[in-house]
């Protein structure tokens, strides 16, 4: 998003549409219709002119994006540690021993123990995996739903577009955390259902992005040509439209993952998300917060894992965006 642009925004139509939005909130997080248009124009360029060189350039840039690489490596390391670590430990997730309660870190208990003597390393690892699992499911579901709904809205326009747009506005009218709280407390429960609740709220952003991209490619000649030559709607959407939105969607899904992990941990911290006996990083922080004065490490450890994971995910997303966004092709020093 950073770099300048000399593309042709379909200014008249886009502007007037954005001019009086019911809720302009979706644009807020840094993705406007203009970005969308830009993505679109580039994808087209990439397809028609030199798909290979664009792909290769993107990969080169991604590799040169040191932070993105760091993010990728960091994420893989953390996940590996979460998976392999508990195998090496003598303890299990819910095995407790009150005699060993509130121990500090030792060779035996790497991260110490909690109030009823459960091993915090194993709990952190499993909780972390649980958080990641919820985040991934929610991000993927939200992405699929958002992509389809956004594409459909833009492609068909008219009544369909109006309906989906109103649905998006409906979800934006009350702050996300409020809605999430209500629904996750009452409809949440296990990981899958919590993920669905999160996805239910988070598909809107991607839908807006995809809608913007599709709106601007819809007018392109080859789409019209495809329609004119008798291709079905489904065929046009899947063969011509969706391939062009993959770039922006990949970026969005990565950034969404970070958002979901933060939201899930927040809900769990408030007691509205993951419920015992399951644990996520958020519940681990909540469990430890009462003793933060005596033992800040027990709060900091799971807290910092959330921060690290989100940091890595965001670095990755930023790198992908730089790699896939044509505007950062120039100007870097």
């Amino acid at each position: 998003m950073d770099e300048g642009s000399d593309f042709d925004v379909p200014e008249a139509s886009d502007r007037s549409e954005e001019a009086v939005p019911l809720f302009s909130v979706g644009e807020v997080e840094g993705f406007s219709a203009e970005d969308a248009a830009h993505y679109a124009s580039d994808e087209l360029e990439g397809l028609s002119d030199a798909p290979k060189s664009f792909g290769r350039l993107a990969w080169t840039r991604f590799r040169h994006h040191r932070l993105a690489l760091l993010g990728g490596i960091g994420l893989v390391s953390i996940v590996l540690m979460f998976i392999v670590g508990p195998m090496l430990s003598d303890y299990t997730f819910d095995q407790y021993d009150v005699a060993d309660r509130l121990l500090g870190p030792s060779r035996d208990h790497w991260f110490g123990t909690d109030e009823i003597g459960r091993d915090l390393f194993v709990r952190t690892a499993q909780g972390g995996l649980y958080s990641l699992r919820i985040g991934l499911i929610a991000a993927v579901v939200a992405t699929i739903a958002g992509t389809l709904l956004g594409a459909v809205a833009a492609y068909f326009g008219g009544w369909t577009d109006g309906f989906i747009s109103q649905l998006i506005n409906l979800l934006l009218i009350v702050p996300a955390l409020i809605v999430l709280s209500v629904f996750s407390l009452y409809f949440g429960g296990d990981a899958n259902r919590l993920a669905m609740v999160l996805a239910f709220l988070l598909w809107t952003r991607i839908a807006r992005v995809v809608r913007g991209v599709v709106l601007s490619i819809k007018e392109q000649e080859y789409i019209m040509a495809a329609r004119a030559s008798g291709a079905s709607h489904a065929r046009v959407i899947f063969r011509h439209v969706l391939p062009n939105v993959i770039g922006p969607v990949v970026v969005e899904v990565t950034l969404l993952l970070g958002t979901v992990i933060v939201l899930e941990s927040t809900l769990s911290f408030l007691g509205l998300g993951v419920q015992p006996p399951n644990a996520s990083l958020g519940t681990l922080v909540a469990e430890a917060k009462g003793s933060i004065d005596d033992d800040p490490l027990r709060v900091l450890t799971p807290g910092m894992f959330i921060v690290l994971i989100v940091l890595c995910v965001n670095f990755l997303g930023d790198g992908l965006r730089d790699a896939l966004d044509p505007r950062s092709r120039n100007e870097r020093n």
């Binding site: 933060v262 927040t266 959330i306 921060v307």
Partner: peptide
């Protein structure tokens, strides 16, 4: 700052 959940 963005990576910090508000509660942490």
């Amino acid at each position: 700052g963005l990576a910090f959940p508000s509660f942490v």
